[in-house]
Write a protein that binds this DNA or RNA. Sequence first.
DNA 1: CCATTCACTCAACATCCGTTGACCGAGCGC
DNA 2: GCGCTCGGTCAACGGATGTTGAGTGAATGG
Lengths: 188, 188
Amino acid sequence: MPTPHQSRAARRRATEARILDSARELFAERGFDRTTIRAVAASAGVDPALVMQYFGSKRELFTAAVQAVPAAPPTAGPDALVDQLLATLGLKLGGLPEGTLAMLRSMLTDPAAADHARAALGRQIDGIGAALPEDADAELRAALVVSTLLGVAVGHQLLGLSPLRDAPADRIAALLRPALAALTTPTH
Amino acid sequence: MPTPHQSRAARRRATEARILDSARELFAERGFDRTTIRAVAASAGVDPALVMQYFGSKRELFTAAVQAVPAAPPTAGPDALVDQLLATLGLKLGGLPEGTLAMLRSMLTDPAAADHARAALGRQIDGIGAALPEDADAELRAALVVSTLLGVAVGHQLLGLSPLRDAPADRIAALLRPALAALTTPTH
DNA sequence: CCATTCACTCAACATCCGTTGACCGAGCGC
DNA sequence: GCGCTCGGTCAACGGATGTTGAGTGAATGG
């Protein structure tokens, strides 16, 4: 309504993007089950039926909202690995992308989100495992690294544990660094 | 019905316990929202109305099912701390108690469960923080320790990440130990 | 042996949610 | 200018869920 003059296709794309943004925000905040199509539609200033028309079903809307999770960038040196991991955590950017948060929020209660999470985390594990020095436990160590970062992300972004919420990102990174180094270094 | 001869009070206590067990199992498996009172009742071989009569509401049933989470045992030495933490993880016992799993499963999507989780994890953090050597970052390091264990618990018990699921518990503990030691040791 | 208690069931209500089909009106091409 | 396309709305259905109130039958206690 307030947009004065636009091509029909442009308006169409704009409202679709508005719906997707509202969906991402609500999915990230409340998770899949507690996010209703009606709430997404209201937040986007649109009729619920339109959401269905554009995305087919609530499931497909969720999939579309979460899809923007980028894979881990190609790992370079084994030393820069830890820095890269800390960046992945999103501590440097003040937060993970909302689509990722939506997936994390729902991963424990929605089987489809759990599959998505397992796949994404599995890819991370494989990437890190390949960058680690050759060792029988490389994959397991990579899994522990990813689990550690997952725990910090959950505690910080999703649960808001007070010591984490109030701490500056670089201090968290500084304290985490030796722990990640210990996990990535064979101990024999 | 199959129980042949019992006092009325005993039967009553038995069915209440059966309901609680079914509730814990389903809450741990599917989380708060996806667990229906009808399903709990069916699993306990009972009418849904009886669940209401005994526990008042679905919320109170959940609270009762989750309540059995024990606080951290009084921390002794600063060296045994890491061992104790690994025990808390439940790796040695093949799994955390089902009430704890129920709370963890729902903590990202149910605000009440999130409060419960924040409180329980906060208590853990305080306990560990007090056991750490005096340092300005003690509480933050304790929070990172708890987050790490939370991440491993989630990845292992709730998501079932394959490298973690297939690894023997003592190997996970062995790899985790130096990382936890790095977190609990001031680095200056 | 009888009245009462009490564990337990049955049927129903109210609400909410995902989803659908008919419908409307403004912008587009001709 | 006209008819068609299409972005968008409206009203409704069907199912599931938490919750309730009346009812039933067996164990209890006197």
